[in-house]
């Protein structure tokens, strides 16, 4: 029976991105329907060193495609190889990062495969897979069946635990890069400007402090000390990003980052449906807003109706005091 294939995501200098571990967990949950085994495919300019990090997760094989033309990710260069390797598998899964969301539907089209994106769970029913996925900004969950022999999915990172190494040593096997089609010759990677931050990664942080438009130009001035006191990542509402107070990749919401930290602190965020879709799986939600009727209070575990410009420094000071 064909197995599952995890498509890993790595940095350009050959380190495995933590997001990959969610896709491994997804594949492990799917095992009974995919012949009990999964492999991992690693592509990139420095894929071999990343592959070495992936040999202790119980994969049958770690397949490596290292090629200088894969140094910068583009779907046009990656999809042909992923599809060629993937065509003998029953399930191809990656994590729904910006790369996974870009690549996997393209791979699915190449294989004429059904696609289930941003899944919050995968269920096994006999030998069939069922994909549970949020729709309508997380207001509805659909359980989806794909009817194609090869199936492609992406996993919502916040809904799958990071797989832990289980020991063992999967054999590493090289695979050749498949010559890409005409599309690849017509796309140029130009640049990747990384946003530098001292703070933890938004999708991986235990605590997230998010700000809305109400904080205005003092966005980082107000939030940074609190984030520091909590060891938190910083997020933002769409309104704050649109207004230019925070960079685009800080946005939490239906179409931005989906986060589910232990503690989510929403500051000056009214709670639009699209924002709530990105954070409502958080374990504990705190809302600070001076509008007592803000919708965010309907989902917050703790609500503080207050002027954020006074409450946030006071909260920061209180946390520092308690921690000594």
């Amino acid at each position: 029976m064909p197995h599952a294939l995890v498509v890993a995501e790595i940095t350009e200098d050959g380190k495995v991105k933590k997001a990959t571990l969610a896709a491994i967990t997804f594949a492990q949950k799917a095992l009974p329907a995919v012949g009990g085994a999964f492999s991992i495919l690693v592509l990139g300019g420095a894929a071999r060193s990343a592959a070495a990090e992936l040999t202790s997760f119980g994969a049958q094989k770690v397949l490596v495609c290292e090629d200088p033309t894969l140094a910068h990710y583009t779907a046009e260069h990656y999809a042909p190889t992923v599809a060629e390797v993937g065509k003998s598998f029953a399930l191809l899964v990656a994590t729904a990062t910006s790369q996974g969301k870009d690549l996997m539907p393209r791979v699915a089209a190449r294989l004429d495969a059904g696609f289930a994106g941003d899944c919050s769970d995968v269920l096994v029913e006999g030998t069939a897979l069922r994909y549970k996925r949020p729709m309508y900004a997380g207001n509805v969950f659909g359980t989806v069946e794909l009817t194609t022999p090869v199936q492609v999915a992406t996993a919502r990172q916040s809904e799958f635990d990071a797989a832990a190494p289980s020991g063992g040593s999967s054999p590493v096997e090289a695979v050749a890069k498949v010559a890409p089609g005409a599309a690849a010759a017509r796309v140029d990677y130009v640049s990747l400007e990384a946003v530098k931050s001292e703070r933890p990664e938004l999708t991986e942080a235990r605590v997230v402090v998010s700000g809305g438009r109400a904080i205005k130009e003092q966005f980082f001035q107000v939030l940074e000390p609190l984030a520091q006191a909590l060891g938190a990542a910083i997020g933002a509402s769409r309104a704050a990003v649109d207004a230019g107070y925070a960079p685009g990749d800080y946005q939490v919401g239906q179409t931005g980052k989906i986060v589910a930290p232990e503690l989510y602190v929403a500051i000056g965020i009214s709670g639009a449906i699209q924002h709530i879709a990105g954070m409502k799986s958080s374990k504990v939600i705190v809302a600070i807003n001076k509008d007592a009727d803000a919708p965010i209070f309907q989902i917050a575990d703790y609500g503080l109706v207050a002027d954020l410009f006074q409450a946030v420094p006071a909260l920061t000071a209180e946390l520092k005091k308690r921690k000594g």
């Binding site: 495969a113 059904g114 359980t143 989806v144």
Partner: peptide, 20 residues
């Protein structure tokens, strides 16, 4: 069609907590 939705459901409701 290659996709069939077998079931739709609402997510568990998250209720408002307390005001501090």
């Amino acid at each position: 069609l290659s996709t069939k939705t077998l079931k739709f459901e609402k997510p568990p409701a998250r209720s408002a907590g307390v005001r501090v």
